[in-house]
Nucleic acid binder design. Structure first.
Lengths: 196, 196
DNA sequence: AAACAAATAGACAGATCTGTCTATTTACCG
DNA sequence: CGGTAAATAGACAGATCTGTCTATTTGTTT
């Protein structure tokens, strides 16, 4: 018996290219604002190719978010799991990463936050994908707060998360990259108060 | 010469009802996701009535946001301009207001943040309306921080704003009203550290 | 070369979108 | 009552949306 006869390849150049293009357009203009046809025209790919790889637009969006999560987690963990850095240095470097991001030319807020804004129904697979990604960041922050020796690591982690989420939203709204610096200052103060 | 022959009434029951209905639907499902026809059907109003009061859907959205800003500002200032409260009590009450909001049945995030998510272009009137509303909150926070006697009121105000924005986004993403409490704890710690 | 899978162009359906227009009815007001 | 403005229903245009289908071409592998 032949294996995987009907299975669609999880890795394929066309699929990757579609995800790249879809990410760029969704991130630039939003999910509802960008139609399938626009993505296909920009990627120079036939419609049936897209629908062979993804069952629907919603599934494409989920795949875009999952792909972005992998890339972001990788950058984040390169900082948080760097044994050459002290916990405090990790915290510092983390917010520097945000500064760099906010200053990047195509920064346009958080693709996950914006996905929740457009798909607020908790039952939506898109919404659920976002929640999983965000929870992963909260968990990583809690680990860091434990390394910091915080009195209440989970509570401090959540506070730090509120600061990062707020910084992203503020930087996006006002095109103000310095929000990362403000958040860092606040984060260090909270961390300091929490390890006394 | 008769006055205001062609001018449209700024206050009218139909207009108000349209704004109420539009707000509810936009807030529930998002701006692109809700069509004009849906609003009209829900409000039981004819299409030409809407287009007599608003030139376009975008203008309707702007009017919805402006209307919401008035209501929110009113609630906010009832706390911040209450002479019976100390500055610290005002800060406390402010975050309690968020707790109450997050716990309300139809809480679905911030209509302004979600507007930026869907209309990220800075040139968009919708985007500009959001920025004006958010700036108003930052200014109000700065006044409060001055009352608190903060060493750097503007900086503390921005940090508090990051906390509130983050709390709103977090509460929305995870349907977790306790984000307001976490934000309050952090805010009090920052305010305390900033007034030493 | 033969066989098979992947990708293509393009038509198509059916729904939905914003915005316009007309003709009629309602409601208020002097 | 008469006049005027507001609101109505509903058709309509023109564009756009997601998703399906077919017939053809491309590309790779044996």
């Amino acid at each position: 018996m032949p294996e995987n006869v009907t299975a669609k390849p999880r890795n394929s150049p066309k699929r990757d290219h579609l995800l790249d293009t879809a990410f760029r357009l969704f991130y630039q203009d939003g999910y509802h604002a960008v139609g399938i046809d626009t993505i296909l025209a920009e990627a120079k790919v036939a419609k049936m190719t897209l629908y062979n790889h993804f069952k629907s637009k919603d599934e494409l969006i989920v795949a875009v978010l999952q792909r972005h999560r992998i890339a972001f987690t990788s950058k984040r963990d390169a900082i948080l799991q760097d044994s050459k850095r002290s916990p405090l240095q990790k915290l510092d470097a983390l917010f520097d990463m945000f500064t760099e991001w906010f200053n990047s030319e195509d920064f346009n807020g958080c693709i996950n936050i914006r996905a929740v804004a457009e798909y607020p129904a908790p039952s939506s697979p898109i919404n659920q994908t976002v929640k999983a990604a965000k929870q992963s960041t909260i968990d990583a922050l809690e680990t860091l707060c434990q390394e910091l020796g915080a009195n209440h690591p989970a509570e401090l982690a959540k506070q730090l998360f509120l600061l990062t989420e707020g910084a992203i939203v503020h930087a996006h709204t006002f095109n103000d990259p310095t929000a990362a610096l403000n958040a860092k200052t606040a984060a260090l103060a909270l961390a300091n108060a929490s390890t006394s």
